[in-house]
Design a binder for these strands. Sequence first.
RNA 1: GGGUAGGUGGCCGAGUGGCUAAAGGCGGCAGACUGUAAAUCUGUUCUCAUUCGAGUACGAAGGUUCGAAUCCUUCCCUGCCCA
Length: 408
Amino acid sequence: MKNVFDILDERGYIEQLTHPQEIKQLFAKESVPFYIGIDPTADSLHVGHFVSLMVASHMQRYGHKPIILVGGGTATIGDPSGKTDMRKMLSKEDIEHNVACIKKQVEKFISFEGENAAIIVNNADWLLDLKFVEFVREIGSLFSVNKMLAAECYKQRLETGLTFFEMSYMLMQSYDFLYLYNKYGCKLQMGGNDQWSNIIGGVDLIRKIGKDDSFGLTFKLLTTKEGKKMGKTEKGALWLDPEKTSPYEFYQYWRNIEDSSVDNVLKMLTFLPIEQINELANLKDEQINEAKKIAAYEITKLIHGEEEAKKAEEASNALFNGQGSLENMPTVELDSTPLSLVDAIVLTNIAPSKGQARTLINQGGISLNDEKITDINYQISDKDFSTGYAILKKGKKIFYKLQKKNMD
RNA sequence: GGGUAGGUGGCCGAGUGGCUAAAGGCGGCAGACUGUAAAUCUGUUCUCAUUCGAGUACGAAGGUUCGAAUCCUUCCCUGCCCA
């Protein structure tokens, strides 16, 4: 059997490793319990977590045991890494709700049954009961403040201010690793590269207490060529929850990525064989659109299932190539006609306010049934529904199907 | 605890009594060009009413003034230096 290490490597997941040689040998030698942490700061995962789950899935396929740590305890603090401001704290109820939602999404990637079944743990279970003095004496004494301050993740914060509260985040994450090491024999922590400092904190902690088989690995963050984080949309993050980001929008996001990201996205976010990916990524110019279609389809399938992926693909074909049915595009029902175009735009959330709806119309960004409309007083009436529905379009890529509620 | 500099629209950052819904940049959106790409150029970017206009907004609450983001008072928060 191939070593997962090579898989992770050839697919470009790996950014940094604490002990490259040893980690590779470890993978070959035994089934390694490893953990990735997820902060339950929202009730859905987003693309940022996607990469972590992909890696965990690859690892599990090769016989290693995933431990998904949900940071119910640490979320009460908020990781200061890379943030310029202290994060707002979440209530206990929020966190519990979020944990439950996250669990469902994780199940799409990782099996909780079988030989190397994954487990989910919540660090609230051990962190909340810690005694302060005890913790500081036993764990805190093993951390050098000088070293921590030198860490990249704190440097930025040193300029704007950093509280002790936030600094202890690293200690807690390190303690998590130690706890999992002791309880489940967890030897490896994985995470996004922004977690590097926290990860080596844990690796060092375990080594300081006399063990030498703790390791850390970080993945590359998904970024565009300019280094912008991927997964941002005009509405904020690209969520994995279909209620927050519809499968159609999700599909379209990947369909529209820039050429230079195709290779990365295919490798990191799909399970397509590497040979096929290399072929696809080599397509030039206009042809690379084929690769994007495949990427969008595969990624959507992973998150939302085959059926939703097909629907999204079909809707997109219908809209952009004029073939196939319009049935599956996002639809909004209208109570009554006539309705002003401005109102319809706000109703469909195409624009958040009437003012913005008007600017859109004025700038020629709105069309109805393929006809550009520049009259801000336009009233949508029955004649726009001659085919039974009306297509409202913003810009080139955002479509909504309007339908009347009571067709009589 | 003492001293000092600050808190401005999604972010960064000008503005120090009326011409300020507040320069500039970033980000976002739209238009042109394209391949549902990138880059570039143009427009736009608080809310309601697009006719005039009105309402909210410069950490919070009060006050001075015909008029305040700009002045005064109290409070909250943050940086830096000293202890």
